[in-house]
Amino acid sequence: MQRPPVPPLMSRSTAALLLGLLALVAASFHSLSIKWGDLFSADALRSSAEFVAGFVPPELASAFLSRVGGALLETLSMSALSTLIAFCAGLLLAIPASGRMGSSLRAATRLLLNVLRSIPELVWASILLIAAGLGPFAGTLALAAHTGGVLGRLFADTLENLPRAPEETLRINGASPLAAFLYAALPLAWPQFVSYALYRWENNIRAAAILGVVGAGGLGQMLKYHLSLFQMQQAATVILAMLVMVALVDAISFWLRHRLME
């Protein structure tokens, strides 16, 4: 009996893809020329151990803790306020971006939203420092700029996917476009908008914590400050505060999601 031929292990295109990936990885390591020997030499290991040992014990003096608390509130305020601004801006931009004011305006606003969205918060923060100066104000604006782009895009998509009938019925019966939008489209889309905004707020809390490393306020700015003065114990406290805050936010959002799902 003739046995069927053994199927090839992988198709030729898969093999080419794998080879390409391997080449990319090899080229990456080669071009970065990381000195692994230096990294793991006894000297380097000792100095890293010293560096890590400098973090304990974290600074827990009450005066310092209250400053950390202040920075924490600053971080939370930055995230909340920026989400609020982004919500309003996103809503305003989503109306033209959903094609309700002509297709050329739709393309233009979508382009604007894409630009806002594709530049990360941290890059926005470093650019906005020039106009707004060091501090949490620049950070808030940066978060609002990026989030405005994200929310505007999501809102516009939601508005485009709504059923058309309610809005058109109002229009046929003589309502103005604005009234039709406010009374038919917006109530339908609102719960989705709020849930997007809450989701972005959660993201923004995380982002606001680190924005400060370029000087835009909050916990990050404190971390950068103490690290650059080599005050490791203070830096450790700030990092711990970040971890606790993020863990709490995660837990609350997990709990809320489960409550809402039920």
Partner: peptide, 10 residues
């Protein structure tokens, strides 16, 4: 909003 505006030096 007021405390948030103060904290963010808005």
């Amino acid at each position: 909003c007021w405390p948030m505006l103060v904290y963010t030096e808005f």
